[in-house]
């Protein structure tokens, strides 16, 4: 498979603190790759390394099949990025902010109006960016990333500060850019629910380690495999004791006993055992985890 962005065994330390421990990202060309992890997991550090904003300590980074170290300028010509909060010059208007980049990328001036239209900022006129709301600044940041029609878009939590409607608009815009222009998009988030409707591939990072990487379909397969069994009895505390005595990894979750996924025969055996112990079994049912639960299970270890 051709990867648009690939990192190999990236290790990064701040003093003795290992913040990335062997990160190997593989972003297929044409995909929308969701880079997920809780706050402080190492998402931003990884993306900053990919863009050369941090000095690489160990590992390799290649973009469009070329080594970043030796083809930095050539690669950055085709990359649009928005890392953390948007870089907006507050004393300038939206058009002037994009003019700065238009001069560097040497794209036609008409492109400024096009991208402002795309992000819904075409009516801001002479208003200074300092007077924009956080959502408007975020949109301007996204407009800046699109100005030069990049082949790879790297967005670090781009929906921060946007209202629900704004989040949906940005999501639709990214899906359209991916479909219409074949743009590869890497989007980081700490909320799976926010991007699960958007991404084709996902990578999950926690405490500097990749916990999962693959297609969304593979992640959903895990959803089915990672199901659990819920039990409810007339005396759940006693039932929990019985199950633990039998070596079943049961725990109380939201007021009911939850056990790991198991075969039907094993479920029937547990049912018999609880009845033998004089307990009334009110409910014994298999439950499927949603993606969010899988994500939480992964990041909680």
């Amino acid at each position: 498979m051709t990867y648009c962005l690939e990192t190999t065994n990236i290790v990064h330390k701040y003093s003795d603190d290992v913040v990335l421990d062997g990160i190997s990202l593989q972003v297929p060309c044409g995909s929308i790759y969701g880079f997920l992890g809780p706050n402080g997991a190492g998402k931003t550090t990884t993306l900053r390394l990919v863009l050369g904003l941090l000095r690489k300590q160990q590992g390799a980074i290649s973009v469009f099949g070329k080594c970043f170290d030796t083809h930095r300028i050539e690669i950055l010509r085709q990359v649009g990025s928005l890392i953390e909060s948007p870089s907006v010059y507050e004393h300038l208007t939206a058009t002037e902010n994009l003019s700065l980049l238009q001069k560097v990328y040497q794209v036609p001036r008409a492109r400024i109006g096009e991208v402002l239209e795309v992000v819904g900022l075409s009516q801001t006129g002479r208003k200074k960016a300092g007077q924009f709301s956080l959502g408007m600044k975020q949109r301007l940041g996204i407009a800046a990333t699109l100005l030069h029609r990049p082949s790879l878009l790297i967005l670090d939590e781009p929906t921060n500060g946007l209202d629900p409607n704004g989040i949906i608009e940005i999501r639709d815009l990214l899906i359209e850019l991916n479909a219409r222009e074949g743009m590869t998009i890497v989007i980081s988030s700490h909320l799976l629910s926010e991007i699960e409707k958007l991404v084709t591939h996902a990578g999950i990072i926690c405490k500097g380690r990749m916990m999962f990487q693959g297609t969304l379909a593979e992640l959903k397969k895990k959803e089915r495999q990672a199901g659990s069994v819920a039990v409810s009895t007339n005396d759940d505390a006693r039932a929990l004791e019985v199950l633990r005595e039998d070596g079943v990894g049961a725990s109380m979750v939201n007021g009911e006993i939850v056990m790991p996924a198991m075969s039907n025969e094993r479920i029937a055996g547990i049912n018999r055992r609880l009845i033998e112990k004089g307990l009334d079994v009110h409910k014994l049912s298999a439950m499927e985890d949603d993606l969010e639960a899988i994500f939480m299970n992964m990041v909680r270890g």
Binding site: V79, E84, S87, Y89, V104
Partner: peptide
């Protein structure tokens, strides 16, 4: 300070410039 105040150094360094 224009770059620091507007959090813009990262954008400057991600431009295709040496």
């Amino acid at each position: 300070q224009i770059e620091y105040r507007n959090n813009a150094w990262k954008q400057v360094h991600a431009l295709p410039l040496s």
